[in-house]
Design a protein around this nucleic acid. Structure first.
Lengths: 227, 227
DNA sequence: CGATGCTGGATTGGATCCGATATCGGTGAT
DNA sequence: ATCACCGATATCGGATCCAATCCAGCATCG
């Protein structure tokens, strides 16, 4: 009984490409191209674009076109601030649903993060770890919101692992995961929430030290009228 | 250069009707009806429904239909928990942008709330007051998220003012607004955030004392298969 | 030489038409 | 009498066609 509609299928695939950086921020999206590639007409593609626009992944300009949304420095910071508040909340709601079996799974995922061979793989496994921690309670809106916030920053998170010193950053992340995990396994929600907030805050601080990530590189972004 | 597309026009109008309760939760939405009423074809209506679905206002079932989303007790509670975390954050970001002139506007809006003649008017003015407090910083995602959370609960907020004791509730709200306002005008962000969190939390507690609001009244809601 | 106005092509937005699917009522068998 | 099966109809999802809009390049003029 799943939604097999073309618009949601295309939306899911486009989302994946956007957050993986296959279609980088600022790229124009032409309806016809997408339609042809997926073997559908432009009608479901337009629904797709409306969906992605609602999530903030795509920016539509009336009668003009669609672009993969770009984040500037302040927007990215804003999203991290939101995550700092929302994810601890979700973790607090999730913890009562965790069991000793899930603890084992968490540890496995944490080690999986540590052993990631590539940066892209590291990012995916990191997200898997976080998703597992926050799984459990049927809080649809909260989880969806958190997911969307991750989506919006995923591209820039990869950029953040590019520069030198990323090895050090990886170590920090792994260590912070251990701190969160220990609090979770101790059944101590307050510590777990604090550790998670610290973890996100730490990443935000890193973002704030690397504003060069947000240099406008791609061509014509609408909304930039040079006088 | 505004988006004058039919889909966004229709989406805005449908949103207004849904949150005002003109189309109550659980009602089925037929594409043809909407299309005919707005003088458009079903294509932009379908885009509209996808948009509203992304915001959680409408629930789509593949090849079956669209319904105005209903909230159950837990979902409503969840949304209030999110607001408790997000709105203080936004207030903290907004306060540095406030000026003595905005203070005057806040006081005017607060009195406007107190003087509301009807329950519906009270709700709208209450929202205007909150929106004004949170206005200022160009934090699009955060503000949009907060707006959507208000949208999702607006209908049930009205239900909450129906039962006896709502006069007492109104007095509480007005008093809490004064507390928030005083902290804001004192330029004390921590107190302001705490007062706002308390205000939202207070409303959540009220919701939790009135689970009867969420009794499934409307007919066929999909997803409920009675074995 | 630079600025401005115009025109053709590309692209989006919308309407109509067609096929697919679910729902609902009726019919028959147990 | 109840349940299973089955067809008619309403409704949805998608494709194709047409109109409206925007953009780029070129010509024209100051």
């Amino acid at each position: 009984m799943h939604d097999n509609a073309a618009s949601t299928r295309v939306a899911a695939e486009l989302r994946a490409r956007i957050i993986d950086g296959v279609i980088p921020p600022g790229t124009r999206i032409r309806q016809e191209e997408i339609a042809e590639e997926f073997g559908v007409s432009r009608v479901p593609v337009r629904e797709t674009l409306r969906i992605l626009e609602s999530f903030g992944l795509v920016t539509l300009v009336a009668s003009t076109g669609a672009w993969v949304s770009t984040l500037d420095f302040d927007e990215c910071r804003e999203i991290y601030l939101m995550r700092e508040r929302l994810e601890p909340l979700l973790l607090g709601l999730a913890m009562p649903t965790h069991t000793p079996e899930s603890f084992g799974e968490f540890e496995r995922l944490a080690q999986h993060v540590e052993a990631a061979p590539t940066k892209a793989e590291f990012l995916h496994r990191d997200r898997d770890f976080h998703r597992a921690l926050l799984a459990g309670p049927p809080t649809k809106r909260l989880r969806d919101t958190v997911d969307h916030l991750w989506d919006l920053t995923h591209y820039y998170r990869r950029q953040l692992l590019q520069p030198e010193g990323s090895a050090r950053r990886r170590e920090d992340i792994v260590a912070e995961h251990q701190m969160i995990l220990r609090a979770v396994m101790d059944g101590d929600p307050e510590s777990a929430e604090a550790a998670l907030a610290f973890h996100i805050r730490h990443t935000r601080k890193l973002v704030e030290r690397h504003p060069e990530i947000f240099a406008q590189s791609c061509e014509d972004i609408p909304g930039t009228l040079p006088t």
